[in-house]
Amino acid sequence: METVNGEREYPFCEIDPEECKGCHLCVSSCPAEVLEVSDNLNSKGFHYAEYKGSGCIGCGFCFYMCPEPGAITVYLKDYEPGKAV
């Protein structure tokens, strides 16, 4: 989510709709309740999970609960874009 001055607001969460298999473990694991099931289907026919756009607290629970290696990425508070991690 971009702030008014064009910078990302950290932390935030990114979900690759094509890697998501729609188990929704991330949705139920999110204590901030900022993930939801999309009305849209991905190419495999799954209702993928998506970030509501704000409110991520950077706990990482969704990342660790997600069974797909690359489906979820969480950018934490101290993340610096462009810096190798």
């Binding site: 797909e68 690359g70 991690v85």
Partner: peptide, 30 residues
Amino acid sequence: KTVLRKPKGFLDVYKHKPGAEKDRTHYCPG
């Protein structure tokens, strides 16, 4: 950590996996 992303213990591309889907696992949802 400043980012939680696909760990480097994984291959970027699952080269040994047959078929076209070389970026996702064979495991069932959940």
